[in-house]
Computed example of a mutant assay.
Amino acid sequence: MADEILIPAEIRTEFGKGAARRIRRADKVPAVLYGHGTDPLHLALPGHQTLLALRQANVLLTLDVPGEQKRLALPKQVQRDVLTGFLEHVDLLIVKRGEKVTVEVPVVLLGEAASDTLVNQDLTSLPIEADATKIPEQIEVSIEGLEAGTQITVADITLPEGSTFNGEPETLIVGINEAAELDTESSAEGEEAEGDLVEATEEGETTGGGSSEGESE
Rank of each mutant, 00 (worst) to 15 (best):
I11W: 05
H36W: 12
E10F: 12
R55W: 01
G85H: 08
R24I: 06
L41M: 12
P40I: 10
Q69F: 07
R22A: 10
G85D: 03
V59P: 01
T38D: 15
A9F: 07
R21G: 04
L60D: 03
T50R: 11
E10Q: 14
L72F: 09
L43W: 09
A26D: 14
K70L: 02
D81V: 08
R25Y: 12
A44P: 06
A9V: 04
Q79W: 07
I5R: 01
G16S: 14
P8F: 08
A9D: 11
L63H: 00
T62R: 03
A53E: 11
R12A: 04
F86R: 14
A2C: 14
V32D: 06
L6C: 02
F86M: 10
A9K: 12
G47R: 02
L54F: 00
K17D: 09
L60H: 08
L54D: 00
L61K: 01
V82Q: 05
P75W: 04
A20W: 06
G16W: 14
E88T: 13
L60P: 02
I7E: 01
K76M: 11
L45M: 10
D64M: 15
R71Y: 08
L41R: 02
L54I: 00
K70H: 13
K17V: 11
T62Q: 04
I23K: 15
D39W: 05
L51N: 07
